[in-house]
């Protein structure tokens, strides 16, 4: 289920499409939002939002930034 599952050996050309070291970056937005010590606190508040809420909403940006980055970095490698 993880983004970079090990793969049985295959031809080099087809491997290039899905196998890039950049894909490992996808683990960041999977792991970080699931660590409660980072977000489970009230202070500091931002615009009245306790940290629990603003930080988890901010993780959305982390997710978007990472998937966008990986998409851009791997796109040139022959995948359209």
């Amino acid at each position: 289920m993880s983004a970079s599952e090990p793969e049985e050996p295959g031809s080099a050309s087809s491997r290039a499409k899905d196998h890039s070291p950049w894909n490992w970056l996808l683990f960041i937005p999977i792991v970080v939002p699931l660590i409660p010590v980072f977000f489970n606190a009230d202070s500091p508040r931002v615009l009245g939002f306790p940290r629990f809420y603003w930080l988890q909403l901010a993780y959305i940006l982390l997710g978007v930034a990472t998937t966008t980055l990986v998409y851009r970095l791997t796109k040139k490698r022959g995948d359209r």
């Binding site: 289920m1 993880s2 983004a3 970079s4 899905d18 894909n23 996808l26 683990f27 960041i28 937005p29 999977i30 939002p33 699931l34 988890q56 909403l57 993780y59 959305i60 982390l62 997710g63 990472t66 998937t67 990986v70």
Partner: peptide, 14 residues
């Protein structure tokens, strides 16, 4: 919220 954040990187390649 975390549920719908981790879902997309998780299935990006799958």
């Amino acid at each position: 919220v975390p549920y719908t954040i981790v879902i997309y990187p998780l299935v990006f390649l799958v």
